[in-house]
């Protein structure tokens, strides 16, 4: 029983980690809290829904297609909303407010267009019955979640650590002006980061949609709360911290739901958020300097 719940927790947590990863990368490199991020999540799930329902694509094809589509949406939104604020060096809160307004408009427009109903992926997409490993029961959807998350995290870390682009991105995270003076095209890198983050969030949306099989316009917003808890626990802008914190939160949520009450999941997550802010505001693993005002 406990082993099963820990497994479920790790699987749930890996989707949280995936979600938080793009968000924290965006904050780390671009220094914006981009709240349209929750919408990317919804968009990914809906693109996958469209592709699997209307075009009968298998999920292994729909997942990357949704990721690329959402990545493109993210680039456009970034250009519409944030490029101008970056140019005039607007305060952090301006970008937060602008994306907050945009994400409400996007969710509300989507609800007005498609309705608030919960939609489901076609049954055949999810694959046959669960697999049994000793006492553990794991669905194929959960395995896909785990493999996809691991693959994307590895690819992202490799990109950041092993390639010249990653070096440029880290330089830009350190100091965008200096990076620009060193000949780095910061505008193009910003678009690239938006694309990567959009693709990560889009894929996360598909995976969560698979895992819970419930897709509706505001699903990204429910995820945002988790994403924020993960990001604060892990430390704003800290990729490794986001990974560990994501899995931790997944385990905590599953255990809360299993042993106390599923209605307290959100409250427990939020209590942890506040506790971390009081005790370790730079995150549990924070080496990075907290940005004090």
């Amino acid at each position: 029983m406990l082993a099963q719940q820990l497994t479920n927790g790790v699987l749930l947590g890996s989707t949280y980690a995936l979600f938080a990863l793009g968000f924290t990368l965006m904050f780390g490199v671009l220094r914006v809290v981009n709240l349209t991020y929750g919408f990317y999540f919804t968009a990914g799930a809906f693109v996958a829904l469209l592709l699997t329902r209307s075009y009968s694509l298998p999920i292994w094809a729909a997942l990357p297609a949704a990721a690329v589509t959402v990545g493109a949406i993210a680039v456009v939104l970034d250009w519409l909303l944030l490029a101008r604020l970056r140019r005039i060096n607007a305060p952090e809160l301006s970008s937060l407010m602008v994306t907050l307004g945009a994400v409400l408009a996007l969710y509300a427009a989507m609800t007005a267009w498609l309705g608030p109903d919960i939609r489901r992926l076609p049954a055949e997409v999810l694959g046959g019955e669960a697999m049994i490993f000793g006492p553990l029961r794991i669905t194929q959807a959960q395995i896909l979640v785990l493999i996809a998350t691991a693959a994307m995290v590895t690819a992202l870390l490799a990109l950041m650590r092993l390639t010249p682009i990653g070096l440029a991105l880290r330089a830009m995270a350190e100091n965008p002006d200096a990076a620009g003076l060193m000949g780095i095209d910061t505008g193009r890198l910003a678009a690239l980061v938006s694309f990567i983050c959009g693709a990560l969030a889009g894929a996360g949306g598909v995976l969560i949609g698979l895992n819970f099989n419930a897709i509706q316009p505001y699903m990204g917003e429910a995820m945002m709360l988790r994403g924020f808890v993960v990001i604060i626990i892990g430390g704003l802008g800290d990729i490794r911290g986001a990974l560990i914190a994501g899995v931790l939160l997944g385990i905590i949520e599953v255990l809360t739901a299993g042993y106390i009450s599923s209605g307290l999941k959100e409250a427990v997550a939020f209590a942890i958020l506040v506790a971390v802010l009081w005790t370790r505001p730079s995150g549990l693993f924070g080496r990075t300097q907290t940005r004090r005002a």
């Binding site: 809290v33 709240l35 305060p91 952090e92 809160l93 937060l96 907050l100 917003e221 429910a222 945002m224 709360l225 924020f228 808890v229 990001i231 604060i232 704003l236 009450s261 209605g263 307290l264 999941k265 959100e266 409250a267 997550a269 939020f270 958020l273 506040v274 802010l277 009081w278 505001p281 907290t290 940005r291 004090r292 005002a293």
Partner: peptide, 29 residues
């Protein structure tokens, strides 16, 4: 507010944005 207001402005915004949803889950349960 006590812990976040000593930090940069994004912390208060991030910490409060989920509060409404957390309380909703509590009221319902």
């Amino acid at each position: 507010g006590t812990p976040t207001l000593r930090l940069s402005g994004v912390y208060l915004a991030i910490a409060t944005i989920g509060l409404g949803e957390v309380l909703r889950a509590l009221y319902i349960n």
